[in-house]
Design a protein around this nucleic acid. Sequence first.
DNA 1: TAAGTATGTTAAG
DNA 2: TTAACCTACTTAC
Length: 270
Amino acid sequence: MPEGHTLHRLARELNERFAGRPLRSTSPQGRFVSADRIDGRRLTRATAHGKHLFVAFEGLAEQVHVHLGLYGGVTFADGTDLPIVGQVRWRLDDGSTTADLRGPTACELLTPGEVDAIRARLGPDPLDPGADPEPAARRVARSRTPIATLLLDQSVVAGVGNVYRAEVLFRQRIDPFVPGRDLAPTTFGAVWSDLVDLMADGVRLGRIDTVRPEHTPEAMGRPPRVDDHGGEVYVYRRDGAPCLVCGTRIRTATLASRNLFWWPRCQRRR
DNA sequence: TAAGTATGTTAAG
DNA sequence: TTAACCTACTTAC
């Protein structure tokens, strides 16, 4: 379930559970070859930038870089020496809790220079309280690329994935195909501040909920919905269903090889 | 048993 | 633009 909120939540959980504690580090699957260089060290700090996680350890200049890709994830469980279930790339335990990482695109030990290089190619992150959205606004304002494509470009805004993209464009009533340069001057600012709120909710709740109180099934007098990905949303993967606002049907299309969901009737703003 | 799918990214053509 | 890669789970045959 990895959009930016998942990684920030994971960084927080690693800090809460493991910071300052010496950890056992192994690679049950054998594919994280540097796991033993971490074994026995104390975790000093886990940080997230967009969808990237960096984990630092005492006495080690390098940091572990993790990217979960499409379906990677970390599970925490009480106990140690637990049986290995499935493919576990990296296992950490502090003597009482075990964390297992499965299915990441990246799990590697990187030099400070390599870490800087990754961070340098990422845009501002709505989950970073000190982030400056101006560089992102400038990129959008100069681009002929559709706003829906720009929002998934991690060098423009870091951490937005396919769900937040579809949902923020619906909430702001923006036509996904409008070129960035054709958006009204205030529109990107509204997108950014909505992302700041939505993604902070995502970190807090551990799921993506985007439906405003006035549009919940209860408020609308409709039966409750269960979305397979676990959140309450307006458009993501609701193709064929009626729009929660106007009742017409959602459209779906492929844009830059990702599924896009939107309602043309509600999303006309530029 | 095989195929398809998923909140992602990179490299090859 | 396409294929490849990482894993688990569901659906089709």
